[in-house]
Design a protein around this nucleic acid. Sequence first.
RNA 1: UGACCCGUGGUGUAAUUGGCAACACGUCUGGUUUUGGUCCAGAAGAGUCCAGGUUCGAGCCCUGGCGGGUCAACCA
Length: 565
Amino acid sequence: MSEKTPEKDAVVKKNFIRQIIEEELKEGKNDGRVHTRFPPEPNGYLHIGHAKSICLNFGTAQEYGGITNLRFDDTNPSKEETEYVESIKKDVRWLGFDWGEREYFSSDYFDNLYAFAVKLIKADKAYVDDQDAETISAQKGTPTRPGFESPHRERSVEENLDLFERMRGGEFNEGEKVLRAKIDMASPNMHMRDPILYRIMKTPHHRTGDKWCIYPMYDFAHGQGDYWEGITHSICTLEFEVHRPLYNWFIDQLKEGEYRPRQIEFARLNLTYTVMSKRKLLELVKENYVNGWDDPRMPTISGLRRRGYTPESIRNFADRIGVTKVDGMIDVALLEHSVREDLNKKAQRVMGVLNPLKVVITNYPEGQVEELDAVNNPENPDAGKRKVPFSKEIYIERDDFMEDPPRKFFRLAPGREVRLRYAYYLTCNEVIKDESGEITALHCTYDPETKGGNSPDGRKVKATLHWVSASNNVEAEVRLYDRLFLDEEPDGHKDRDFKEFLNPDSLTVLKKCYLEPFVKDAKPLDSFQFERLGYFNVDPDSSTDQLVFNRTAPLRDNWSKFKGK
RNA sequence: UGACCCGUGGUGUAAUUGGCAACACGUCUGGUUUUGGUCCAGAAGAGUCCAGGUUCGAGCCCUGGCGGGUCAACCA
């Protein structure tokens, strides 16, 4: 356990939720239990915002010796699917969290919920309303104007019981009747104005099949699930703040002893240059702006995984951004920093040329091949060394040569000497062009005295270039990713659709890239650092005869910054 | 004309719960370097939304403003 990560090292900052928990612990509340839950609706893939919530729920419980349930909030059969359930479980596990045997579904509680509804009716705290959605909505008033009561509000308990029973029996059509709580139509809080508890939906459910044709609303299911599972802290996002009085109202009707779950809200994650709403992400997928939920440009957990992000890097990121009630916007640079930091420690180094320029070393013996020593990871001596083949013809990066270099360009240019990493000093003598003036090759000479990259006379070079042998390499496809949107907050503009800000160059596919032979047996998701370029991992699209790499993140690069000025 | 929540460098979080604002990212210098990476050293950048008040002392407490967000789905 000598490995140092911010995760382990960080002085654990006490966010406001931990402060609340510690105060409660001091008071002896819940017998010292801390029990949280992560409650996704299985109607889409998880994204980095959910990762924040997952880390918060599981991490907080862990810290206080508690546990966390996974609960699928599946009260709306028209949107929810088993495919999403599976992807969610995979993502939570991949992030490194375990819910043990405690895998629940809101649909597990349909019987209990029904019984609870009957109890409310008997207590004259719920009634069946025959009005249609528009009428009910109109009666609800507005945030600034109170609502007025439904003409069916004072039905007898017997009639309500009968009607509700028949709703369940399938006697009515969708929209004909709903069950509502009888609370206060004049409440300043809209959610307390006789909220709907049950609606009729003649849609089969992914788990209960056609057993039910009435389904509970979120508000009528969530808190009760918390209560029945013994949840102590029900952590959710800010927009549920106004639901809290209703959450508590239901718990009040339900609770028998002292115990009650407590809802606490925190600010959801917003990241620059992306969108985070499931609806918008679904739109990108459905309309083929990206290639599926796990497209490496997506902020989904599956997308980040495919892109080459590690669970550690995401957890560290979640740690760093903290937890508050301030609705802010995190710079995506912080996310990128988190992967680089993690991959810098772990990634196998390798040389790869993305935009090849051929170099002929005129004084190197024809047909000779040398196996040169290369360090696998300078950050980790235990990673050892490997051999890289060197030959008369090699490829270098086109960007590493300029015929007419500006000041501050340290790399190869006519008459200039540079180092080929782990190989020799190289001097450019001649630039070969085709009839259109395009540079097609360089004729260079090497200094045999500089094998390994050091000159016996101590002469210095200003640059070290990566290279790949032209005769012994692996050809691969490399996919370069840039931010999906050109605007910091694509969905932050009134009257403009977020898709207007899509970056047309968010994906660049390079078909003929040359990598050193070391990568030939790489498996999907394996991460590498292509020296001087960035972190890359193997895409699942790879096959044995066609390797495909994704660029996870480029290396920090002062030259390109300078160049851009 | 409502209710609830929020307001600390460019961004995100801290501040021993009242003792003259710290850390990270980003930015900019410089050093080391066989990755223009990493690493190291340093700098700029907020006087805590505003105005009053309490106090020896306020980012923390009180009052009043201002600004932002959320709430009017038979979605979650």
